[in-house]
Design a protein around this nucleic acid. Structure first.
Lengths: 241, 241
DNA sequence: CTCTCCCACTTGTATGATAACCGGTCAATA
DNA sequence: TATTGACCGGTTATCATACAAGTGGGAGAG
């Protein structure tokens, strides 16, 4: 046994049914407003029990793809997928990571601009503390990723717009795993790049502290664009003030 | 009977169970990685059948809040809610609409910047056609909302970043309904504001056509910020180049 | 003590039954 | 004729039970 790998666990039937129904809806096979076949009929067509169909439908309801009414049937939602944003990037596809990161650059840049206008005294202090922690780590030839994340999270919160905060948290969660993998491929961080990163952080903070929104946005974009290139995801290729 | 209203339809049990479980997970009552009580136990605790619990669990699985393994049980996901972004604004809360619109300003501004760099000839032609249609409508004292939407959609597509495109479509779908309601509250659009809107559109297009990314971003932000104020959602209060 | 087998527990799936609900038919009635 | 109201077939919502399949631990053999 030379090439052992994780076994492919038998997929749950309801997953498969949900997948197929969702695909049929998204491709327009079932148009918005149209009525789906009854559970009984779907169960026969897929050759599964009605239970399985119901569980699949339950998921589609949760995703707001369909809408069921007792006694009437199940109907494709007027706007399938409204109210729900999902991103399932191919972790191997650099293009996907690049595109998602680009979205983050745009949003977090704007968040920094808002933070420059709105950050409270205590939030500024928190940012300063993060910079301090990172400096200490650098002096000890280490890399305080936690403080880095805290710094960015504080700025997002300081935007005083919960949707910026939530969306950046969301994007971050999706990028973290993929980035960690991408980073392990490239060589370890150059020791001098740590200093560059810290300089960028200082620039962002300085602009926020001075309440200079355009400068804060530009600095954050510069920082994240540089981060993209350091990760081998290519340049931002967007507008730069 | 002076104040008749629609009756409150009895909520589905699985909805309620899913809601309570999701709340328990999000508040940390069930920590990430922790094992949930068995379906049987939950069924007894909620005093419902096991099916209802299973349907609720199915939805939580779909939202990536939990993860079940046959024979083992159900476990809270390591990062509950990762891979899923939902916004359920209170349509009556102006603050929510303001915040979401602000996010749109940031993202669509960046999309315009990217479009200035990347838009193809045919996409430029499409934008021009939309402007033309809107001008015709204005001449006839009408308001071509469809062309307006097409114009914005084309720019999003021209960013050549599918995530910008998808996210803006998502935000648009969520804002449309609320905006329509908000607009009906205020008086109908001033006739002169239509001209202002068109001037803003022309400015955005001109910058894109000239491949001037910063100008395109600034113009789009200006346009959308003005739109926010026209809708009575307050100013953008962010960075402005 | 170690190894193996078995069993309790859990989720996944199937089946059948009942209740609630909906739209339409159609006869009874004013 | 027009309105009402009971009824019917079909559909979803819920329940109950049973069995299959996967997991982990513990009893018992060696």
């Amino acid at each position: 046994m030379t090439s052992i790998t994780t076994v492919t666990r038998a997929p749950r039937l309801s997953d498969e049914v949900a997948r197929q129904l969702a695909a049929a809806i998204r491709t327009g096979e079932f148009a918005p407003g149209a009525r789906l076949p009854s559970e009984k009929e779907l169960a026969e067509r897929f050759d599964v029990s009605r239970m399985v169909v119901r569980e699949a439908m339950s998921r589609l309801k949760s995703d707001e793809l369909i809408d069921t009414r007792q006694g009437l049937g199940a109907f494709v939602a007027a706007e399938p997928g409204r109210g729900l944003f999902r991103l399932e990037p191919d972790p191997a596809a650099v293009k996907d990571l690049h595109d998602i990161f680009q979205l983050r650059v745009a949003v977090e840049g704007a968040a920094a601009g808002l933070a420059a206008v709105r950050a409270s005294r205590s939030e500024l202090a928190m940012m300063r503390a993060c910079l301090h922690d990172m400096n200490i780590a650098i002096a000890g030839k280490e890399d305080d990723v936690a403080a880095d994340n805290r710094f960015h999270a504080t700025i997002a919160r300081a935007s005083r717009n919960p949707y910026f905060d939530r969306f950046l948290t969301f994007l971050g969660a999706n990028l973290h795993g993929s980035i960690a993998r991408a980073r392990s491929n490239t060589a370890a961080r150059h020791p001098e790049s740590v200093l560059a990163v810290q300089a960028e952080h200082e620039a962002v903070f300085a602009a926020i502290e001075q309440r200079n929104a355009p400068a804060a946005e530009a600095a954050m974009r510069g920082h994240l664009s540089a981060a993209m290139e350091r990760l081998g995801l290519g340049p931002f290729t967007g507008s730069r003030s």
